[in-house]
Structures are given as C-alpha cells and as structure tokens.
Amino acid sequence: MYYRSLFPRDLLAELERLQRDVQQTVEPGPSIRGQRRGYPALNVGGTPNAVEIYAFAPGLDPATLDVQLEKGILTIAGERQRSAVPEQATEHIGERFAGRFRRVVSLPDDIDPNSIVARYRDGVLHVSVQRREETQPRRISIQ
C-alpha cells in the first residue's frame, strides 16, 4: 500500500505522498461504490505465483457467501443478519455491521481464472488465485 520513492532526496514528493495517505484514511475515496472501507475489510497480497485476498467477514454462514470471478473482477457478496434483540431488551452499543454487502477487487491480468480456491476460517474468507504459468518469473540464461 505504501509506495516508497526510489529517490529518497525528493522530500517534497514524500511529503505529498504522506499527505495523500492521510487524506485517504480520513476522507471517503473517489470510488464509484462510495466507501473505501466497508464490510468486509480486505487485505490483498501477492507472491510471484498467486494473488491472495483476505476478506474479514465474521459471523457468516459460508454457504451464503457469493464469490464470483468475471472478466478479472472478483466480487464477494452476501448478507449478514442483525443479531436479534429480544423484546424488552435494550441495545446499548450497536457497532457491528448488518445487512447486504458487496465488495469488488480488480485482479491483475496474469491470473488464471481456472485455479482459484476459497476457504472460510475463523471468520476470514481467503481467496487464492494462481497466476498463469507462462507469466511467472523465470531466469534467463545468458549465452
């Protein structure tokens, strides 16, 4: 997430980057879907062989989770039920998300749509997408 300049002397650029990062965490992003952060929270990482997406989606029935990959766009959608408040009970704090959700991740071009694995454990949905073999790094011998 944090882009570091290769040329550390460019202090102004670094300051600008810092300002941008601060702004992004405070203000809503320019995304057409509104929130930059929503439910579930996402971490995205990569290795030379695969792209790993972690969706922090606690309290779901894995069977109701809808994970789709279409044209390089990964969509995670579902619904989380509100915890029932019995009659004559008072809700003091209500911070947990409830309702329908949908989050969309645009994946890089070199992924293989046929080798995708999704697991749900401890409230985290982990989607692992392999990269295509011909695009994986290989050593080129010098003749």
């Binding site: 579930p40 915890s83 947990r96 401890d122 409230g123």
Partner: peptide, 18 residues
C-alpha cells in the same frame, strides 16, 4: 461490538475475524 441488556443480564457480541 453490540451490547444488549435484558432483565437477566448483558449479552455482548464482538467481531474478531481471523
């Protein structure tokens, strides 16, 4: 978290994914 109180006590729900 969600915190709900009824006559018998308090129920607390906390999201701790991962």
């Amino acid at each position: 978290v969600d915190v709900v109180e009824d006559a018998g006590g308090i129920t607390l729900y906390a999201d701790l994914p991962g």
